[in-house]
Amino acid sequence: MATIRVQEADFDIGAEFAALTAGRSDIGGIGCFVGTVRDHAGGRRIEAMTLEHYPAMTGPALGRIVAEAERRWSLLGCTVIHRVGRLRPGENIVLVLAAAPHRQAALDAAGFLIDFLKTRAPFWKKETFAETGEEAWVEAREGDDAAAARWQSG
């Protein structure tokens, strides 16, 4: 049973590990990715990052991505938590945990989950620059599509 949450509050990585593994001894490895707010972009200092999403679509979209990972890697458990709202540099944005019997499946599933989340889940980031207070929407990177595409043949 996967845990999928979208929230303004921070998450506790240790608590999420504990919840994922509670009462189980069949897990051989947990792949983990944590995305955090960088304090610079294109040589400029970032004051804050504001994340918005499409609430009615986010849950179903994350559910589809998680279901695909569970199917491809026979996961024993999975956690995806994505924050929204105004975040400061250094704060957590996203947590992905993928539990599997073996190392490679856990690592690959975690990679797949974050790559697909970046290209298939309806979240948008806006950066506020420190010097001027100017705001700009983050543009999607072609590299993100390429990262997601490498899983197509797998």
């Binding site: 995305g35 009615a56 994505h82 996203v94 970046k118 948008w124 929407w137 983050v138």
Partner: peptide, 12 residues
């Protein structure tokens, strides 16, 4: 139908 328009997504 509910039709939503948005830029390419940039989460994660």
């Amino acid at each position: 139908d509910e039709v939503a328009f948005f830029p390419p997504v940039t989460g994660g």
